[in-house]
């Protein structure tokens, strides 16, 4: 686990170096794919993009194809790596959970001053939904892109039905990716999310921010770092509590199952589940 509270620095480690590398490899190659994909459409001449100094190459579809392939190599390899690697480690913090839809509406409402944000885990409910959506779009693009690539090299007379499906899945995926990317950038522009931007570059976010906004996550971490954690009364409460009441919180439940019950470890996850009750945000540890 790389996540760690650094109380002295008022920071908490949010992402490992590997996770940062994955995000940026996907982001950079994804943006290159988006641009070179656009230049695979006959737009450069029509929209006078070719006349912009330095963009003369955009009219040449073969040049764009080199770049599209090069970026697709990184994009595809890293996406597959991501799925399998975090799958093996059972890291599911970004998987959507039950109740994410209504919770994300509550969060969005709070942005415009309607009500308070519910207490949150490491990721906002909308981040988990965005992740699932992005993953689906990326898989669409990769699978259809692989078919198109195979056709270009090995089977120019591949069944027209297959080619049409691949092409249109790719084109629709392109539009969805464009929209999702726009939404992602819009989310970053929202002030409450700003502290996370530091995180995606350095891996660390401000501890006071995290305590305030990702209370459930910090509670989890504090149990893992007993020297830092306030010895919360809830821990005992949680110890007595039956296994997770909240069926939505699969990740915690899974973790609880994996960890040998040796007094220290097991109930910790439940703490967050119990205090996950939106009615009682105030009496969580650290607040």
């Amino acid at each position: 686990m790389t996540e760690k509270i650094l109380a002295d620095e008022n920071r908490v480690v949010r992402h490992s170096g590997l996770e940062l590398a994955e995000h940026w490899a996907i982001a950079v190659s994804g943006i290159i794919l988006l641009l070179t994909g656009i230049f695979e459409l006959p737009v450069a001449k029509r929209y006078y993009i070719v006349t912009i100094p330095g963009l003369g190459w955009t009219a040449d579809f073969i040049t764009s194809l080199y770049l599209h392939y090069a970026a697709a190599f990184v994009f595809t390899a890293v996406a597959m790596f991501h799925l399998v690697y975090h799958g093996i480690l059972g890291e599911k913090g970004l998987m959507p959970r039950k109740g994410d839809f209504s919770a994300s509406i509550a969060v969005i409402k709070s942005f415009i001053g309607l009500g308070k944000e519910p207490p949150m885990h490491k990721y906002l409910p909308e981040q988990r939904l965005a992740y699932a959506g992005m993953a689906l779009i990326i898989l669409m693009l990769i699978v259809s892109g692989l078919v198109k690539t195979y056709k270009n090299i090995y089977a120019p007379d591949l069944s027209w039905t297959v080619v049409l499906w691949a092409t249109w899945i790719h084109n629709i995926g392109f539009i969805l990716f464009f929209l999702a990317f726009g939404a992602h950038m819009a989310a970053i522009l929202l002030k409450p999310n700003w502290p996370m931007v530091r995180g995606i570059f350095t891996g660390k976010v401000r501890l006071d921010y995290a305590r305030h906004r990702h209370a459930l996550w910090i509670a989890d971490l504090e149990q893992d770092q007993p020297t830092l954690g306030t010895d919360s009364p809830q821990q005992t409460k949680a110890n007595e509590a039956p296994p997770p009441e909240n069926p939505g919180d699969q990740a915690s439940a899974d973790r609880a199952k994996e960890t040998p019950v040796n007094g220290q470890n097991a109930p910790r996850s439940e703490v967050s589940d119990v205090s996950g009750d939106p009615e009682t945000p105030a009496d969580r540890p650290g607040e």
């Binding site: 697709a72 190599f73 597959m80 790596f81 990769i142 090299i153």
Partner: peptide
């Protein structure tokens, strides 16, 4: 085509590394 071949190999490489 060589670039395309690399793309076709990418899923295998990614999964192996993972």
């Amino acid at each position: 085509d060589k670039f395309g071949d690399a793309v076709l190999a990418a899923p295998v490489l990614g999964i192996a590394a993972a």
